[in-house]
Amino acid sequence: MVSSTALAVTALTLTAACSGNPGSATASAGRTEVIGAFYPMVWIAERVGGADVSVRGLTKPGAEPHDLELTPRQIADVGKAKFVVYVKGVQPAVDEAVAQHAKDRSLDAASVVKTLPLTAEESEAEHAGEEHSEEGHGHETSYDPHIWLDPSRLATIATTLGERLAAADPAHAAGYRANAASVAGELGALDKEFAAGLRQCSQKTFVTAHAAFGYLADRYGMKQVPIAGVDPQNEPSPKRLAELTRVVRDNKVSTIFTETLVSPKVAQTLAKEAGVRTASLDPLEGVAEGSKDDYLSVMRRNLQALRTASSCT
């Protein structure tokens, strides 16, 4: 007996295939349909796929991705796409949809790079506010999923994606591999810029709105101290805020970093209590619709913000 859910997904798939909406089968005829779970995966899919793919993002531009809830239509899109690129552990709803509908047509970017376990401070930040929360958000991975904030890891993901797209669409294999090599080269150059820019800094500790920058810190010899954990919605307890104030003062931290997609109120409160300034550090989880920014430009702006806050020469 066919379930009502299966019938609904089938109906939605047929509707999408017959519609003229952007990203539908009609609008992208002749191009390989690829889904990116959220901005960094959309960006890498567009760069590696080039003109031969039609990329659809599951997370709206400018929206915070961690607690995304998928609509039935989006689940249907996952089921019919030629390929899906995601990071397991960032969006539980996407993890579930891929496991059920696209397991053999997907790339979990976290599976092709070395992941880092959550540090003690990151783990503490992740659970610090749980006593004030009615329910968790479902982030149960033992590793930090924010792999895209290390350009060298993202370069590896680009290379792997090029090979996987080549296997999924052999007619355009040469183009995918060439595009992957090109973007990996750009990311390699960005990696060198970060290494040089953060090599000589008087301050190696930086405080972030949530635990998104562990890979960046590990790659370039810095130390991240997060206010919230992997999920930015987990607000810290008063005890955690008091501990953070001591960390800021003891380490002579000059700046508390806020984010573009998360309310700055907690970070501003901490900065006021500690007597320091705030600045923006973008975890690149989303870029506003119509923005001229992309991964490379935002990362270069992050580098400048870190250099200023850390008194780098």
Rank of each mutant, 00 (worst) to 15 (best):
A166G: 10
R249C: 06
A189C: 01
A228Q: 13
F213P: 01
Y215S: 04
D144W: 14
A228R: 14
A173Q: 07
K204C: 04
L241E: 07
G185L: 00
V247Q: 12
E131F: 03
A166D: 09
D150H: 07
P236S: 05
A155G: 05
K204S: 14
V230H: 04
H137I: 06
Q203I: 15
V183G: 03
S202L: 07
E163L: 02
E140Q: 11
A209P: 03
P170S: 00
A184D: 13
V225H: 05
L190I: 12
S142C: 04
A167N: 00
L198H: 00
A217T: 14
V225Q: 11
A195Q: 02
G221T: 06
G229C: 07
A178K: 10
A209L: 05
Q203V: 09
T159I: 07
S237F: 09
A167T: 01
G221A: 01
L244A: 03
G188D: 06
G214T: 08
A155L: 08
F194I: 06
T156C: 02
K204Q: 10
T208I: 10
E140S: 08
H132V: 09
A196L: 11
P236H: 10
A217K: 15
T156A: 14
S133K: 10
A174D: 15
A158F: 13
F213D: 06
T156K: 11
R177Q: 01
Y220H: 04
V247H: 03
A184R: 12
C201F: 13
P170R: 00
W148V: 04
R246D: 12
H172N: 12
R240Q: 15
W148R: 10
T208K: 07
A178Y: 03
I147D: 14
E135V: 02
